[in-house]
Design a protein around this nucleic acid. Structure first.
Length: 448
RNA sequence: CGGGGCGUAGCGCAGUCUGGCAGCGCGACGGUUUUGGGAACCGUAGGUCGCAAGUUCAAAUCUUGCCGUCCCGACCA
């Protein structure tokens, strides 16, 4: 993409309403524009990041054997009356009446819809297990939206629903989700710690929240510092192997890590003092096993091998896709701007032409652009007639992990400059070497 | 939902107390000179002063009502 033809409305000054780094930086980098309290338009740069996170979630869900689909945002109230949640959900649910006077609602979640789909089409244990998921916009009419996309009213979320014959099978689904979530977050360059949590209004027997440590987090968290040393890394994952999934889940949840809702001071004090940590975290996902809470009242039954009609065991599992954009920035920025992890960056590499209009610099930049594109990467070429300082400031603000700087001075010596956004380190090298270095950073995962 | 702010150009704000030409900085646009970390100068455009009613010769400014938005608390992915 050439910046001169792109839409990147960056701001030099910080809009007054933004209190935390991610909100401030998303506004300044031209990623979002507020439409109403807690409701945002995603401008092109923000949209790219949102899509990359969504893509990682899709890939990891499907790797775990989960099946994508799409349910509507507007739902009929009747289904919610059936589950008993139409009244329970209260003022957070946006209620709508259509032209025929029917009660509708903008979905805050999708248990009712998915259960309705399940009961209409599934009747035998032979069709289980089944995991369906979708990524869709949701709406919760928060009393006080804040922190930009981290606590919006409209938000984009992956929610998955598991259907199993037995509790044991449902717990395998729970562990499988835990592992797939860990893998998704690691690909996004994030550490999200699974913590035992309260179940809240969705209801359930077992639940973990995934928290990203950040000073601006909404939850107080208490944990054993050793949990932050655990990584999934490149290990092979056998999602169909219940014992293997349980082993990984146990490895990540064995040590003490809880939010304030379930914090147990006595157990916390059993941790060696040097490893006790009290901090704050941003919730970026949650997994629930809730048994037959919805299947019983809504009649989602299957016939088991003994010929008996039994309610299915269900679980639901969510990842806050739009919230992750903010959470990643909270976890990865500096005083100059955003520092994107390579896994979610909106563009793989920036090209800064220090002397736009200089034939040699222009040609070198075009050649770099073609070479990077040819290597399967998406570069952002700053071809504006701006001064160097302005171009650097823009690149730093939008946080691309790599920047190739091209100027007549370096070209005389046959070199360009490759700069790492995170460390600030620069190195001079031939344009070809710069391309292969950047391409090497993204390996086979480039594109998308 | 309780309490408190704020609403004036795309962004940041002054002007409101004490009614009297709608301003400043940044940004945008044009020009000249510049050009390796947010350049300088000259010029130009851009405003239903949140909305409505009221008071007044005269309202951004005073009064009333409404709307929007932000912050603290409670609540919540």
């Amino acid at each position: 993409m050439r910046l001169s033809r792109y839409f990147l409305p960056v701001l030099k000054e910080t809009p007054g309403e933004a209190r935390i780094a991610s909100h401030r930086l998303m506004l300044r980098a031209g990623m979002i524009r507020q439409a109403s309290a807690g409701i945002y338009s995603w401008l092109p740069l923000g949209f790219r990041v949102l899509r990359r996170i969504e893509q990682i979630v899709h890939e990891e869900q499907q790797r775990a054997g989960h099946i994508p689909m799409l349910m509507p945002t507007v739902q009929p109230a009747d289904l919610w009356r059936e589950s008993g949640r139409y009244d329970d959900y209260g003022e957070e649910m946006l209620r709508i009446t259509d032209r025929h006077g029917r009660d509708m609602l903008y979905g805050p979640t999708n248990e009712e819809l998915i259960t309705d789909i399940f009961r209409a089409h599934i009747s035998s244990y032979r069709d289980l297990p089944l995991t369906l998921y979708h990524i869709q916009w949701k709406f919760r009419d928060e009393v006080r939206p804040r922190f930009g996309v981290m606590r919006g009213r409209e938000f984009y979320m992956k929610d998955g629903y598991t259907f199993d014959l037995t509790r044991d099978a449902a717990l395998h689904a729970y562990n499988r989700h835990l592992v797939s979530y860990l893998r998704s977050y690691e690909r996004m360059g994030l550490q999200a710690i699974p913590m035992r949590a309260a179940s809240g209004p969705i209801g359930g027997d077992d639940t973990h929240e995934f928290l990203v440590l950040a000073e601006t987090g909404e939850s107080a968290v208490f944990y054993d510092s050793a949990v932050t040393d655990i990584r999934l890394g490149a290990r092979a994952l056998a999602y169909d192997d219940a014992a293997a999934c349980r082993a990984v889940a146990e490895e990540f949840t064995r040590l003490y890590a809880r939010t304030d809702e379930t914090h147990d001071e006595a157990k916390f004090l059993e941790i060696p003092e040097a490893r006790r940590r009290v901090a704050r975290g941003i919730e970026v996902g949650q997994i629930f096993y809730f048994g037959t809470k919805y299947s019983e009242p809504m009649g989602a039954m299957v016939v088991n091998a003994q010929g008996e009609r039994v309610p299915v065991h269900m679980g639901s599992h969510g990842i806050g896709v739009s919230r992750l954009v903010g959470a990643i920035i909270e976890a990865s920025h500096d005083d100059r701007g955003i520092v994107w992890p390579e896994g979610v960056t909106p563009f793989h590499c920036g090209i800064v032409n220090l002397k736009q209009g200089n034939a040699g610099a222009d040609a070198a930049c075009e050649a770099l652009y073609a070479a990077l594109t040819g290597a399967g990467l998406e570069p952002l070429y700053d071809d504006r007639a701006e001064r160097a300082g302005a171009k650097f400031a823009t690149m730093d603000l939008i946080g691309l992990p790599w920047r190739i700087t091209v100027g007549p001075r370096g070209l005389k010596a046959g070199v360009v400059e490759l700069t790492c956004r995170r460390t600030g380190e620069s190195e001079e090298m031939s344009p070809e070497a710069a391309v292969s270095r950047v391409a090497g950073r993204y390996g086979g995962t480039a594109g998308g």
